[in-house]
Structure formats: structure tokens, C-alpha cells
Nucleic acid binder design. Structure first.
Lengths: 334, 334
DNA sequence: CTGAAAGCGCTTACAG
DNA sequence: CTGAAAGCGCTTACAG
């Protein structure tokens, strides 16, 4: 193709120069070349470019949760938009159906220049070790435990403080018997949210009772449903429920509804994450907002910097959350 | 790299043969090569391979709706899983922030070997014409109107019949005053769903009244909310609402809730799509199930076939839908 | 400001 | 069953 473009009368290299917008090209020859490029609908071959430059112009993203989860979707959406702006493409790896070695191979095979790792991937020591050994650029999102991360880059929120903030809100509303619905997953961000719940209660002088903390027996909405049923049947005074995630909250709301109780009149429900659909729940969910777009943006921008300059300093970023008050909580009615 | 692998004592080509699992390699030499490949952690360079083969091993997917939409997420999830199985990678193009020419350029630049087009992209005549002119493999999902599609491949569902089925269900439950909440978008699949609503009513001898058909004023959940409010205030007898999509139904349910009415006791609500979260609505939504995974699978498999053999016949596939009965509808109470 | 040479890492014919 | 040659379409030094 470029040979053809050369028929504009100049050398290969000169064409290359204008395609890549380099300096040192005479305005007239530049214009002539641009014109013939346009006429011939020339588009540089990505593979050839990648081969000679040694760069794929593509980053990988290892997702912890199924793509069809609203949380992942929002993360993908944000990541993709940043990548597009920077002329990078995005290769998705779902933890559900791809192995860690596929990520390594993608890097070794120069399909990706670096990778963003969500919770689960960040817990895979072998993966991390290999990445480090290869000196592969990566940044972690919501690493499972900060203890595990060394000097490596990560982007995270303060789960403990955010949960405390949510439960505080419930306490300020006058609630005393506050349930805590937790996921069935062994991740530290969840533990931290539960700790935040505990801390808020103890700071307010409210005793922590075990029957108020329920773990979901399963992954799906069904789990939240069961949490709610147990919480209600075991705690006569229950007037509010803190859910460790919005997805869980959906199930919890369903469970509450099933017992004939109303939200927020009989029971207040608060979530965590602020997924896209939280505002459309019935009633709209009061929840803790995670700055998903900012998380993705921070991670991608930093990753690209490190790809282009491996000496770029690592970052450890903690992003702020925010309480979004909607309609699922109400002052305690006595 | 391959030079290094050659240090296993054989020629470049022989290594290539075993990497690609071709025939005509002596078992012993094959084994020896495999061993040294393993020792050196050799992974073929994707760019080089793409360059010499003239294939990117990647397909594009132009999405009509924002990625963070549950519908898109489910489509991506399904598409990605099929691609991965076939060793193809997926390049996402969101209609929101990428132009049609970016798709063309990705094809011209050999970044993708073909493309799947969702509704909006399928409506872009210029895009389609260019794709045809380039003889680029593509398949359309939910094309906006079947009239527009020529001989090209598409995968679709029967929107008219599916909507009729949903409304019929409501009629069988005894409902007579059935509202229809529609999106604010100008797509034919929506028109067809409204037509299905009309047909079901007229088949049952129920008059069609205009105040029962409301168009959402906006894109978001808020639109459904307003539809519901209007429907309820303008129609005293209203006992059921057919929503043209599940997302709309979320807003509608909220609107119904806001007026103090209960679902399904006072008003039955039925949706369309069966997005992931429909079962977690409060109450769980009765809706029409679209076989999203099957749609994606059919499209990707066919696209890959056409990429590898351009003479493969085009397909026009209409996939079956299914009524999923959950808890948002109830027999009419008089 | 412009160009000729070599090479990125693989594969495709073609011989043998 | 195996190999030497040429080429995929670009870019990176290096000259001039």
C-alpha cells in the first residue's frame, strides 16, 4: 500500500513521516502526500506497525466479575472510553473463562502492552510474580488486600470509611437495630465494609449482635433474598439493613417485599457501589457511590504512562466515595 | 525468538510447523521442539503472524447502546465468550463515541477481519455501502428494519409476535384496560412491539384507545416513571401495563409505586428483553426473554465462517423468544 | 528536508 | 519429512 502511496513521487520514509505527523517535511510534499493518501483511502496496517514498533497499542483488562454484571459493564464502559481517546484498544479477559496464563501469553505475544487487574487477578500470586518477572506494566484496581500489594500501582477506594459513612447515616436517621447483609465472597473489600459497619455501631454505643449480620448463601440475587428473610425473622426490632453491595440490595429488597413489609416505611435499605440501575430500583436506592469512571480513568492513564516510560513512578491512589441519598431510607418511626 | 527456538537444531519453518500443529513433522523432532519452546516460554508474536497471514484474528462489534446498559453487557458477555473459544479477540466500538469511519479504518488497517453491527450501525447506509464496497464480512443484529436489509446476513427475533404473546398473556389474565409504555427511540423493533400490542387487543375484540399508549419523553428510567404517571392518571380502569423494554419497566414500576399502587395487586406490569436484573426487580418481572447468548453465538459463528470462506452463504436467522412468568402480573381482580 | 538499507517475527509458496 | 528464500507493511537508525 505504501508503495502505491509512493507513487506520489516520494520515498517510503517520507510518507511514513506524514502519516505519523513527524516534522521535517516540506509543506508542499506533505500536502501532496496527504492528498494521495486520501484518494487511495490508505490506512496504515496496524499489524505491521505493531511489529516494527514493538508495541501493540492495546491494553488488557482482567475482569473479576462477569461482564454482564452492571458493575463490570460500567468499568468496561469507562475503560473503553479512555482507551479510545488515547488510541489504544482494549482486550477483555473475563476471569470466568480465561486463565492467568492467557494474560501472560497475550503480553508475551505482544497482543497487549500492559494490563489492568481487577480484584481476583490481583490475588493470583503466580500471575503477579510472572508479570513482575517480565517487567510487564500493570495496575491493579481494588486489590484484595493492601497488605499484599508491594510497591505496585493500584487504584482503590476506602471501603472501611465508606461503609461507616453509610451506617452512620442510618444511625442519624434514628435506627438502632440495623442489619448487615454480606456477600458470600471472601474478599477483603467486603470485610472492610463489615468492619465499617461494626465501627459505626460501636462509635454510637450500639451493641453489635450476631443475628444482625447475615452472609449470603449464594452468588445471585437469591442470596440477598434469603439474607433479608433471616434478618427479619430473627430480629423483631429490625428497622434498617446495610447491604455490602447494590446487587445484594436488590435481593434484599425483594426479600423484604416478600414478607409484606414496605421500603422505606417499615425497613430502610442502603446499598454500596451505586451501580447504574440503583436509581431505578423500587424505591430508588440510597447508596454509596464509587467513582467508577474516575477509577478507570486513573488506572488507564497511569498504565499508558508506564508503558511509554517504564521509569514512571508507581501510584497508590485512594479515590473518594460519596453518599447518594435517594428514597430507600427514612427516619426511624419508633 | 524463533531464531532462538531454532537452536533446537532445526529450521525456522519446522518450528513454525509444530507451533501451528501442521502435519509432516517427525515425532521426535516435534517433541524436541515442543520441549525447547516450553523451556524458553516462547509465545508467537501476534503482530507478525497477523502481518504475514493477512488476518487479524479479531472481530469488531459495534454496539448500539451504552456499554453500561445491561442489555449491551449481556451481548458483550456472550460475544466475548464465543470469540474466546474460537481464538478471536473482540474489539468494541460504542456507537456513542466512535464514528463509522473508525470501523472502516479498523477493517482497512487490518485490526479486525469483520464486524458485527447492532441496530444503529445497521441503519447507517454509508457504513453499509462502504462495507459492501470493500467486500468486508459483517453480520447485523436486530437490524432496524428488514426492508432495509438486502441479502446480507442478520440475526433477529420476531418482535411483533413476541409482543403479541406478552399482551395475550395479560388478556388471558382477564385484563382489559392495558397500557403500553414505549421508548422514545425511533427504532422499528419498537414499532413492531407496539403493533403486536395492538394486534393482541384487536384480536381479543378490545378497542385500542390512544390514552393507553404513552411514549417515554426521555432515555432514562425517568421516562418510564412519567409514562406510568400519565397512564394511571388518564385511565381510571388501568389494571396492567405492557412495557416495550425491561429498562422502561423499571421506571414504570417506580412510577406505579410512587402513586401508592402495588404491583401486581393493583397493576400488573410486563416487560420485554429479560435483562439480567429482571428477576431481581421488586417484584421479579414477568417478561419476554430474548435469547441473547444464542443471538451472539449465531452471529459470531457465522461471521467467522464468512471471514474464512467468503463464499459462505448469507444467513437470515429469526430466533425464538419465550414468555418468562415471574411475579409482576396477576389475574384481574374485577 | 529526504532517502536507501535493514529488520521487526512470522508465513507462504516452492524445492528437495 | 525438512529447509532456503522472499515477503507481509511498516519503522528505526543512519546518511546525506
Amino acid at each position: 500500500m505504501r508503495e502505491i502511496a509512493k507513487k506520489a513521487g516520494v520515498s517510503l520514509k517520507t510518507v511514513s513521516r506524514v502519516v505519523n505527523n513527524e516534522n521535517n517535511v516540506a509543506p508542499e510534499t506533505k500536502e501532496k502526500i496527504l492528498k494521495t493518501i486520501d484518494e487511495m483511502h490508505y490506512v496504515p496496517n496496524a499489524a505491521a506497525r505493531g511489529l516494527s514498533r514493538g508495541k501493540a497499542m492495546s491494553i488488557g483488562f482482567s475482569l473479576s466479575w462477569p461482564v454482564k454484571t452492571n458493575y463490570s459493564a460500567m468499568l468496561i464502559d469507562a475503560t473503553l472510553s479512555v482507551c479510545n481517546k488515547k488510541d489504544y484498544s482494549l482486550a477483555l479477559f473475563s476471569w470466568d473463562w480465561t486463565t492467568p496464563s492467557q494474560i501472560i501469553n497475550a503480553y508475551l505475544g505482544k497482543q497487549i502492552d500492559g494490563v489492568i487487574l481487577d480484584t481476583k487477578a490481583s490475588m493470583d500470586e503466580k500471575l503477579i510474580n510472572q508479570l513482575n518477572a517480565l517487567n510487564a506494566p500493570y495496575v491493579t484496581i481494588h486489590p484484595n488486600s493492601l497488605d499484599q500489594t508491594g510497591e505496585e500501582s493500584y487504584v482503590i477506594i476506602d471501603n472501611f470509611k465508606s461503609a461507616k459513612m453509610a451506617v452512620n447515616y442510618l444511625i442519624e436517621l434514628g435506627h438502632r437495630s440495623i442489619g448487615c447483609a454480606t456477600e458470600n465472597k471472601p474478599f477483603s473489600h467486603q470485610e472492610q465494609r463489615i468492619d465499617g459497619y461494626r465501627k459505626a455501631l460501636s462509635d454510637a454505643g450500639i451493641p453489635i449482635v450476631n443475628s444482625l449480620i447475615k452472609q449470603s448463601p449464594s452468588d445471585s440475587f437469591q442470596g440477598g433474598f434469603i439474607c433479608a428473610s433471616k434478618l427479619i425473622s430473627e430480629n423483631k426490632d429490625l428497622s434498617a439493613i446495610f447491604c455490602v453491595s447494590d446487587e445484594l440490595a436488590m435481593g434484599v429488597m425483594n426479600g423484604v417485599w416478600q414478607t409484606g413489609r414496605k421500603i422505606p416505611d417499615d425497613i430502610s435499605v442502603i446499598g454500596f457501589d451505586d451501580i447504574q440501575y440503583a436509581e431505578a430500583f423500587t424505591p430508588p436506592l440510597t447508596t454509596v457511590h464509587q467513582p467508577i469512571h474516575l477509577i478507570a480513568e486513573t488506572a488507564v492513564n497511569h498504565l499508558i504512562k508506564r508503558i511509554n516510560d517504564p521509569t514512571t513512578e508507581q501510584i497508590q491512589t485512594v479515590l473518594p466515595t460519596q453518599l447518594i441519598v435517594r428514597k430507600s431510607c427514612k427516619p426511624f418511626q419508633g
